[in-house]
Design a protein around this nucleic acid. Structure first.
Lengths: 203, 203
DNA sequence: TAGATTGTTAATCGATTAACAATC
DNA sequence: TAGATTGTTAATCGATTAACAATC
Protein backbone atom coordinates (compact mmCIF):
# COMPACT_ATOMS: atom_id res chain seq x y z
CA UNK A 1 0.00 0.00 0.00
CA UNK A 2 2.81 2.40 0.91
CA UNK A 3 4.20 1.85 -2.58
CA UNK A 4 1.11 3.60 -3.92
CA UNK A 5 1.96 6.60 -1.76
CA UNK A 6 5.19 6.86 -3.73
CA UNK A 7 3.25 6.81 -6.98
CA UNK A 8 0.98 9.57 -5.72
CA UNK A 9 4.02 11.62 -4.77
CA UNK A 10 5.65 11.12 -8.16
CA UNK A 11 2.52 12.17 -9.98
CA UNK A 12 1.86 15.14 -7.67
CA UNK A 13 5.40 16.39 -8.18
CA UNK A 14 4.89 16.11 -11.92
CA UNK A 15 1.63 18.06 -11.68
CA UNK A 16 3.35 20.72 -9.59
CA UNK A 17 6.10 21.05 -12.21
CA UNK A 18 3.38 21.43 -14.84
CA UNK A 19 1.91 24.29 -12.82
CA UNK A 20 -1.20 22.50 -11.60
CA UNK A 21 -2.37 23.90 -8.25
CA UNK A 22 -5.01 21.39 -7.21
CA UNK A 23 -6.23 17.97 -8.28
CA UNK A 24 -8.89 15.48 -7.21
CA UNK A 25 -8.68 11.83 -6.20
CA UNK A 26 -10.61 10.97 -9.36
CA UNK A 27 -8.20 12.84 -11.60
CA UNK A 28 -5.16 11.34 -9.87
CA UNK A 29 -6.76 7.94 -10.21
CA UNK A 30 -7.15 8.38 -13.96
CA UNK A 31 -3.48 9.27 -14.30
CA UNK A 32 -2.40 6.20 -12.33
CA UNK A 33 -5.06 3.70 -13.32
CA UNK A 34 -6.64 3.54 -9.85
CA UNK A 35 -10.02 4.46 -8.42
CA UNK A 36 -10.52 7.72 -6.58
CA UNK A 37 -11.97 5.82 -3.63
CA UNK A 38 -8.77 3.88 -3.19
CA UNK A 39 -6.62 7.00 -3.21
CA UNK A 40 -8.85 8.70 -0.66
CA UNK A 41 -8.77 5.59 1.51
CA UNK A 42 -4.99 5.35 1.32
CA UNK A 43 -4.52 8.96 2.31
CA UNK A 44 -7.21 8.80 5.02
CA UNK A 45 -5.11 6.20 6.79
CA UNK A 46 -2.53 8.88 7.53
CA UNK A 47 -4.74 11.92 8.04
CA UNK A 48 -6.96 14.47 6.36
CA UNK A 49 -5.17 16.23 3.55
CA UNK A 50 -7.93 17.29 1.19
CA UNK A 51 -10.60 19.97 0.90
CA UNK A 52 -14.21 18.86 0.26
CA UNK A 53 -15.47 20.42 -2.93
CA UNK A 54 -11.93 21.39 -3.97
CA UNK A 55 -9.70 18.34 -3.94
CA UNK A 56 -6.03 18.30 -2.93
CA UNK A 57 -3.43 21.04 -3.27
CA UNK A 58 -0.66 19.29 -5.23
CA UNK A 59 2.34 20.87 -3.57
CA UNK A 60 0.86 20.63 -0.10
CA UNK A 61 -0.05 16.96 -0.48
CA UNK A 62 3.43 16.24 -1.85
CA UNK A 63 4.94 17.65 1.30
CA UNK A 64 2.58 15.62 3.47
CA UNK A 65 3.45 12.40 1.66
CA UNK A 66 7.13 13.18 1.97
CA UNK A 67 6.60 13.52 5.70
CA UNK A 68 4.90 10.13 5.81
CA UNK A 69 7.61 8.46 3.76
CA UNK A 70 10.34 10.12 5.79
CA UNK A 71 11.92 11.94 2.86
CA UNK A 72 11.37 15.52 3.99
CA UNK A 73 15.05 15.70 4.75
CA UNK A 74 17.64 14.22 2.42
CA UNK A 75 19.07 10.86 3.49
CA UNK A 76 22.82 10.42 3.09
CA UNK A 77 23.28 6.98 1.48
CA UNK A 78 26.23 4.62 1.15
CA UNK A 79 26.71 2.75 -2.11
CA UNK A 80 28.51 -0.57 -1.73
CA UNK A 81 29.86 -2.22 -4.85
CA UNK A 82 31.20 0.17 -7.45
CA UNK A 83 30.80 -2.11 -10.48
CA UNK A 84 28.78 -1.43 -13.60
CA UNK A 85 25.44 -1.27 -11.88
CA UNK A 86 26.82 0.76 -8.98
CA UNK A 87 28.30 3.33 -11.34
CA UNK A 88 25.08 3.57 -13.31
CA UNK A 89 23.09 4.13 -10.14
CA UNK A 90 25.56 6.80 -9.16
CA UNK A 91 25.24 8.62 -12.45
CA UNK A 92 21.50 8.47 -12.22
CA UNK A 93 20.79 11.84 -10.65
CA UNK A 94 17.11 11.24 -10.04
CA UNK A 95 17.67 10.30 -6.40
CA UNK A 96 18.50 13.77 -5.15
CA UNK A 97 15.15 15.13 -6.34
CA UNK A 98 13.42 12.57 -4.17
CA UNK A 99 15.41 12.93 -0.96
CA UNK A 100 18.44 10.68 -1.28
CA UNK A 101 22.09 11.46 -1.86
CA UNK A 102 24.90 8.96 -2.25
CA UNK A 103 27.70 10.41 -0.12
CA UNK A 104 30.14 7.51 0.20
CA UNK A 105 31.29 4.62 -1.98
CA UNK A 106 32.70 1.30 -0.82
CA UNK A 107 34.34 -1.65 -2.51
CA UNK A 108 37.05 -4.23 -1.87
CA UNK A 109 38.72 -4.34 -5.26
CA UNK A 110 42.20 -2.71 -5.17
CA UNK A 111 41.54 -1.35 -8.66
CA UNK A 112 38.82 1.00 -7.41
CA UNK A 113 39.57 1.53 -3.69
CA UNK A 114 41.18 4.95 -3.16
CA UNK A 115 40.16 6.17 -6.62
CA UNK A 116 37.41 8.68 -7.36
CA UNK A 117 34.22 7.66 -9.14
CA UNK A 118 31.83 10.37 -10.26
CA UNK A 119 33.59 12.77 -7.93
CA UNK A 120 33.29 10.59 -4.84
CA UNK A 121 36.16 8.73 -3.18
CA UNK A 122 35.90 4.94 -2.98
CA UNK A 123 36.66 3.60 0.49
CA UNK A 124 37.61 0.08 1.44
CA UNK A 125 34.83 -1.91 3.05
CA UNK A 126 36.92 -1.93 6.23
CA UNK A 127 36.17 1.78 6.64
CA UNK A 128 32.43 1.16 6.64
CA UNK A 129 31.67 1.58 10.34
CA UNK A 130 33.81 4.70 10.73
CA UNK A 131 32.49 6.45 7.66
CA UNK A 132 28.89 5.58 8.38
CA UNK A 133 29.21 7.02 11.87
CA UNK A 134 30.96 10.19 10.76
CA UNK A 135 28.59 10.83 7.85
CA UNK A 136 25.53 9.67 9.78
CA UNK A 137 24.62 7.15 7.12
CA UNK A 138 21.69 4.88 7.90
CA UNK A 139 20.79 3.55 4.43
CA UNK A 140 22.88 1.58 1.95
CA UNK A 141 22.52 0.55 -1.67
CA UNK A 142 23.99 -2.91 -2.21
CA UNK A 143 25.21 -3.49 -5.75
CA UNK A 144 27.74 -6.30 -5.30
CA UNK A 145 27.74 -9.71 -7.02
CA UNK A 146 25.14 -12.19 -5.73
CA UNK A 147 27.80 -14.45 -4.24
CA UNK A 148 29.11 -11.65 -2.01
CA UNK A 149 25.80 -10.02 -1.10
CA UNK A 150 25.04 -11.82 2.17
CA UNK A 151 28.57 -11.35 3.52
CA UNK A 152 28.65 -7.68 2.67
CA UNK A 153 25.17 -7.26 4.13
CA UNK A 154 26.43 -8.78 7.36
CA UNK A 155 29.21 -6.20 7.47
CA UNK A 156 26.71 -3.42 6.85
CA UNK A 157 24.65 -4.70 9.77
CA UNK A 158 27.69 -4.75 12.03
CA UNK A 159 28.46 -1.20 10.93
CA UNK A 160 24.97 -0.22 12.09
CA UNK A 161 23.02 0.11 8.86
CA UNK A 162 19.25 0.39 9.27
CA UNK A 163 18.05 -0.21 5.71
CA UNK A 164 19.45 -1.95 2.64
CA UNK A 165 18.33 -1.57 -0.97
CA UNK A 166 19.51 -4.88 -2.37
CA UNK A 167 20.16 -5.31 -6.09
CA UNK A 168 21.70 -8.77 -5.76
CA UNK A 169 19.37 -11.60 -6.84
CA UNK A 170 19.36 -13.30 -3.44
CA UNK A 171 17.14 -13.15 -0.38
CA UNK A 172 19.17 -11.58 2.40
CA UNK A 173 18.94 -12.97 5.89
CA UNK A 174 19.01 -9.98 8.24
CA UNK A 175 18.10 -9.14 11.83
CA UNK A 176 14.55 -7.90 12.11
CA UNK A 177 15.66 -4.40 13.10
CA UNK A 178 17.22 -3.91 9.66
CA UNK A 179 14.82 -3.20 6.79
CA UNK A 180 15.43 -4.39 3.28
CA UNK A 181 13.97 -3.80 -0.15
CA UNK A 182 15.05 -6.00 -3.00
CA UNK A 183 15.21 -5.15 -6.68
CA UNK A 184 15.81 -8.10 -9.00
CA UNK A 185 15.77 -7.10 -12.63
CA UNK A 186 15.29 -10.67 -13.84
CA UNK A 187 12.23 -11.00 -11.63
CA UNK A 188 10.71 -7.87 -13.15
CA UNK A 189 11.21 -9.31 -16.61
CA UNK A 190 9.61 -12.56 -15.48
CA UNK A 191 6.56 -10.65 -14.31
CA UNK A 192 6.41 -9.02 -17.72
CA UNK A 193 6.75 -12.38 -19.44
CA UNK A 194 3.88 -13.80 -17.39
CA UNK A 195 1.70 -10.80 -18.13
CA UNK A 196 2.35 -11.08 -21.87
CA UNK A 197 1.82 -14.82 -22.02
CA UNK A 198 -1.42 -14.60 -20.03
CA UNK A 199 -2.60 -11.40 -21.67
CA UNK A 200 -5.60 -12.82 -23.53
CA UNK A 201 -7.01 -14.17 -20.28
CA UNK A 202 -6.83 -10.73 -18.67
CA UNK A 203 -8.25 -8.71 -21.51
CA UNK B 1 1.12 -13.20 -6.16
CA UNK B 2 2.95 -14.10 -9.37
CA UNK B 3 5.93 -12.15 -8.05
CA UNK B 4 6.26 -14.80 -5.34
CA UNK B 5 6.51 -17.44 -8.05
CA UNK B 6 9.64 -15.66 -9.22
CA UNK B 7 11.07 -15.78 -5.72
CA UNK B 8 10.36 -19.50 -5.50
CA UNK B 9 12.10 -20.01 -8.82
CA UNK B 10 15.15 -18.02 -7.75
CA UNK B 11 15.46 -19.97 -4.53
CA UNK B 12 14.85 -23.33 -6.21
CA UNK B 13 17.54 -22.60 -8.78
CA UNK B 14 19.92 -21.73 -5.97
CA UNK B 15 19.06 -24.98 -4.18
CA UNK B 16 19.63 -26.92 -7.39
CA UNK B 17 23.04 -25.29 -7.83
CA UNK B 18 23.84 -26.28 -4.24
CA UNK B 19 23.01 -29.88 -5.12
CA UNK B 20 19.75 -30.13 -3.18
CA UNK B 21 17.40 -32.66 -4.77
CA UNK B 22 14.17 -32.01 -2.90
CA UNK B 23 12.74 -29.43 -0.52
CA UNK B 24 9.47 -28.83 1.33
CA UNK B 25 7.10 -25.89 1.38
CA UNK B 26 8.07 -25.31 5.02
CA UNK B 27 11.80 -25.23 4.23
CA UNK B 28 11.28 -22.93 1.25
CA UNK B 29 9.13 -20.70 3.44
CA UNK B 30 11.93 -20.39 5.99
CA UNK B 31 14.37 -19.32 3.30
CA UNK B 32 11.97 -16.68 1.97
CA UNK B 33 10.23 -15.58 5.15
CA UNK B 34 6.85 -17.01 4.16
CA UNK B 35 4.58 -19.73 5.51
CA UNK B 36 4.53 -23.17 3.96
CA UNK B 37 0.77 -22.94 3.59
CA UNK B 38 1.07 -19.88 1.41
CA UNK B 39 3.60 -21.51 -0.88
CA UNK B 40 1.46 -24.63 -1.26
CA UNK B 41 -1.58 -22.46 -1.99
CA UNK B 42 0.27 -20.40 -4.58
CA UNK B 43 1.48 -23.48 -6.41
CA UNK B 44 -1.88 -25.26 -6.10
CA UNK B 45 -3.41 -22.48 -8.16
CA UNK B 46 -1.43 -23.70 -11.18
CA UNK B 47 -1.43 -27.45 -10.56
CA UNK B 48 -0.05 -30.29 -8.46
CA UNK B 49 3.71 -30.26 -8.41
CA UNK B 50 4.64 -31.91 -5.11
CA UNK B 51 4.83 -35.37 -3.60
CA UNK B 52 3.03 -35.97 -0.27
CA UNK B 53 5.50 -37.15 2.34
CA UNK B 54 8.43 -36.05 0.14
CA UNK B 55 8.01 -32.40 -0.82
CA UNK B 56 9.05 -30.88 -4.16
CA UNK B 57 11.87 -31.90 -6.50
CA UNK B 58 13.81 -28.64 -6.88
CA UNK B 59 14.79 -28.95 -10.51
CA UNK B 60 11.41 -30.27 -11.57
CA UNK B 61 9.51 -27.50 -9.80
CA UNK B 62 11.86 -24.91 -11.31
CA UNK B 63 10.93 -26.12 -14.76
CA UNK B 64 7.24 -26.04 -13.92
CA UNK B 65 7.47 -22.47 -12.66
CA UNK B 66 9.40 -21.45 -15.76
CA UNK B 67 6.54 -22.88 -17.81
CA UNK B 68 4.04 -20.83 -15.84
CA UNK B 69 6.07 -17.64 -16.14
CA UNK B 70 6.67 -18.23 -19.83
CA UNK B 71 10.46 -18.33 -19.56
CA UNK B 72 11.05 -21.91 -20.70
CA UNK B 73 12.34 -20.49 -23.93
CA UNK B 74 14.63 -17.47 -24.02
CA UNK B 75 12.93 -14.19 -24.95
CA UNK B 76 14.82 -11.93 -27.35
CA UNK B 77 14.61 -8.42 -25.86
CA UNK B 78 15.16 -4.93 -27.26
CA UNK B 79 16.91 -2.34 -25.10
CA UNK B 80 15.93 1.21 -25.91
CA UNK B 81 18.09 4.00 -24.52
CA UNK B 82 21.79 3.21 -24.43
CA UNK B 83 22.75 5.66 -21.69
CA UNK B 84 24.38 4.87 -18.38
CA UNK B 85 21.58 2.75 -17.04
CA UNK B 86 21.07 1.01 -20.36
CA UNK B 87 24.74 0.06 -20.56
CA UNK B 88 24.76 -1.18 -16.99
CA UNK B 89 21.71 -3.35 -17.67
CA UNK B 90 23.44 -4.68 -20.74
CA UNK B 91 26.59 -5.60 -18.85
CA UNK B 92 24.54 -7.32 -16.20
CA UNK B 93 24.64 -10.89 -17.44
CA UNK B 94 22.11 -12.25 -14.98
CA UNK B 95 19.27 -12.05 -17.50
CA UNK B 96 20.40 -14.91 -19.73
CA UNK B 97 20.29 -17.34 -16.81
CA UNK B 98 16.65 -16.52 -16.34
CA UNK B 99 15.42 -16.64 -19.91
CA UNK B 100 16.05 -13.21 -21.40
CA UNK B 101 18.62 -12.01 -23.91
CA UNK B 102 19.08 -8.47 -25.15
CA UNK B 103 19.55 -8.87 -28.90
CA UNK B 104 19.11 -5.32 -30.21
CA UNK B 105 19.91 -1.80 -29.01
CA UNK B 106 18.16 1.41 -30.00
CA UNK B 107 18.80 5.09 -29.43
CA UNK B 108 18.42 8.39 -31.24
CA UNK B 109 21.68 10.10 -30.28
CA UNK B 110 24.07 10.34 -33.28
CA UNK B 111 26.96 9.69 -30.90
CA UNK B 112 25.83 6.11 -30.24
CA UNK B 113 23.72 5.14 -33.27
CA UNK B 114 25.72 2.86 -35.60
CA UNK B 115 28.34 2.17 -32.96
CA UNK B 116 28.76 -1.11 -31.05
CA UNK B 117 28.03 -1.33 -27.33
CA UNK B 118 28.98 -4.51 -25.50
CA UNK B 119 29.27 -6.26 -28.84
CA UNK B 120 25.82 -5.26 -30.06
CA UNK B 121 25.10 -2.70 -32.80
CA UNK B 122 23.03 0.34 -31.85
CA UNK B 123 20.21 1.03 -34.29
CA UNK B 124 18.29 4.23 -34.77
CA UNK B 125 14.81 4.24 -33.26
CA UNK B 126 13.48 4.49 -36.82
CA UNK B 127 14.56 0.89 -37.40
CA UNK B 128 12.47 -0.36 -34.50
CA UNK B 129 9.60 -1.94 -36.39
CA UNK B 130 11.81 -3.67 -38.94
CA UNK B 131 14.25 -5.06 -36.43
CA UNK B 132 11.57 -6.20 -34.04
CA UNK B 133 9.84 -8.09 -36.81
CA UNK B 134 13.00 -9.70 -38.13
CA UNK B 135 14.31 -10.68 -34.71
CA UNK B 136 10.86 -11.58 -33.42
CA UNK B 137 11.19 -9.24 -30.45
CA UNK B 138 8.11 -8.90 -28.25
CA UNK B 139 9.61 -7.39 -25.09
CA UNK B 140 11.51 -4.13 -24.59
CA UNK B 141 13.53 -2.57 -21.79
CA UNK B 142 12.99 1.17 -21.72
CA UNK B 143 15.91 3.09 -20.23
CA UNK B 144 15.49 6.55 -21.72
CA UNK B 145 15.13 9.86 -19.83
CA UNK B 146 11.76 10.44 -18.15
CA UNK B 147 10.88 13.26 -20.53
CA UNK B 148 11.18 10.98 -23.57
CA UNK B 149 9.68 7.82 -22.08
CA UNK B 150 6.06 8.21 -23.19
CA UNK B 151 6.98 9.17 -26.73
CA UNK B 152 9.39 6.29 -27.13
CA UNK B 153 6.83 3.95 -25.58
CA UNK B 154 4.34 5.08 -28.22
CA UNK B 155 6.82 4.17 -30.92
CA UNK B 156 7.38 0.78 -29.33
CA UNK B 157 3.64 0.20 -29.38
CA UNK B 158 3.41 1.15 -33.04
CA UNK B 159 6.27 -1.24 -33.74
CA UNK B 160 4.22 -4.00 -32.15
CA UNK B 161 5.81 -4.45 -28.72
CA UNK B 162 3.79 -6.56 -26.28
CA UNK B 163 5.56 -5.77 -23.01
CA UNK B 164 7.69 -2.91 -21.67
CA UNK B 165 9.98 -2.93 -18.64
CA UNK B 166 10.01 0.78 -17.86
CA UNK B 167 12.87 2.32 -15.88
CA UNK B 168 11.73 5.91 -16.40
CA UNK B 169 10.06 7.48 -13.35
CA UNK B 170 6.76 8.11 -15.09
CA UNK B 171 3.49 6.22 -15.44
CA UNK B 172 3.16 5.18 -19.06
CA UNK B 173 -0.18 5.43 -20.78
CA UNK B 174 -0.46 2.37 -23.00
CA UNK B 175 -3.14 0.38 -24.82
CA UNK B 176 -4.47 -2.42 -22.68
CA UNK B 177 -3.01 -5.08 -24.93
CA UNK B 178 0.50 -3.96 -24.01
CA UNK B 179 1.79 -5.03 -20.61
CA UNK B 180 4.12 -2.90 -18.55
CA UNK B 181 6.22 -3.30 -15.44
CA UNK B 182 7.79 -0.25 -13.90
CA UNK B 183 11.00 -0.03 -11.89
CA UNK B 184 11.59 3.31 -10.18
CA UNK B 185 14.73 3.30 -8.08
CA UNK B 186 13.68 6.38 -6.12
CA UNK B 187 10.41 4.68 -5.19
CA UNK B 188 12.30 1.68 -3.86
CA UNK B 189 14.40 3.96 -1.69
CA UNK B 190 11.25 5.69 -0.45
CA UNK B 191 9.82 2.33 0.60
CA UNK B 192 13.04 1.69 2.48
CA UNK B 193 12.88 5.11 4.11
CA UNK B 194 9.31 4.48 5.25
CA UNK B 195 10.22 1.06 6.62
CA UNK B 196 13.16 2.50 8.58
CA UNK B 197 11.24 5.46 9.95
CA UNK B 198 8.30 3.26 11.01
CA UNK B 199 10.48 0.38 12.18
CA UNK B 200 9.72 0.61 15.89
CA UNK B 201 6.01 0.28 15.18
CA UNK B 202 6.55 -2.91 13.23
CA UNK B 203 8.87 -4.64 15.67
C1' DT C 1 -27.94 27.85 -4.40
C1' DA C 2 -25.94 24.04 -7.37
C1' DG C 3 -21.93 21.37 -8.32
C1' DA C 4 -17.86 19.18 -6.85
C1' DT C 5 -15.35 16.50 -3.84
C1' DT C 6 -13.81 14.96 0.52
C1' DG C 7 -13.59 11.52 4.54
C1' DT C 8 -15.90 7.63 6.30
C1' DT C 9 -19.06 3.82 6.85
C1' DA C 10 -20.88 -0.54 5.32
C1' DA C 11 -20.67 -4.17 1.81
C1' DT C 12 -17.93 -6.85 -1.13
C1' DC C 13 -14.23 -9.15 -2.55
C1' DG C 14 -9.85 -11.54 -2.39
C1' DA C 15 -5.91 -13.30 0.02
C1' DT C 16 -3.85 -15.62 3.96
C1' DT C 17 -3.85 -18.90 7.60
C1' DA C 18 -5.04 -23.09 10.07
C1' DA C 19 -6.37 -27.65 10.07
C1' DC C 20 -6.45 -32.22 8.32
C1' DA C 21 -7.52 -36.30 5.36
C1' DA C 22 -4.86 -38.46 1.79
C1' DT C 23 -0.48 -40.06 0.42
C1' DC C 24 4.21 -41.62 0.30
C1' DT D 1 4.11 -48.97 10.88
C1' DA D 2 5.42 -44.07 12.13
C1' DG D 3 6.82 -39.69 10.35
C1' DA D 4 6.65 -36.30 6.87
C1' DT D 5 4.37 -33.54 3.74
C1' DT D 6 1.17 -32.58 0.19
C1' DG D 7 -3.31 -30.49 -1.74
C1' DT D 8 -7.56 -28.71 -0.24
C1' DT D 9 -11.32 -27.08 2.62
C1' DA D 10 -13.16 -23.87 5.95
C1' DA D 11 -12.20 -19.86 8.85
C1' DT D 12 -9.97 -15.60 9.36
C1' DC D 13 -8.21 -11.59 8.08
C1' DG D 14 -7.31 -7.53 5.29
C1' DA D 15 -8.01 -4.72 1.27
C1' DT D 16 -11.01 -2.67 -2.19
C1' DT D 17 -15.23 -0.73 -3.73
C1' DA D 18 -19.61 1.68 -3.45
C1' DA D 19 -22.41 4.91 -1.38
C1' DC D 20 -23.32 9.15 0.86
C1' DA D 21 -23.61 12.80 4.50
C1' DA D 22 -20.74 16.71 5.36
C1' DT D 23 -18.34 20.46 3.40
C1' DC D 24 -16.69 24.07 0.44
Amino acid sequence: MVNRLSLYLRELQQLTRDGTETTSSTRLGELLGLTGAQIRKDLAYFGQFGYPGIGYRCHELSEQIRNILGTSHTWPVALVGVGNLGRALLRYKGFSLRGFEVVALFDVSPTVVDTDVEGLPVFHLDDLADTMRVRQIRLAVLSVPAAAAQQVANRLVVAGVEGILNFAPVTLSLPENVSTVGVDLAIELEQLSFAVVNRTENA
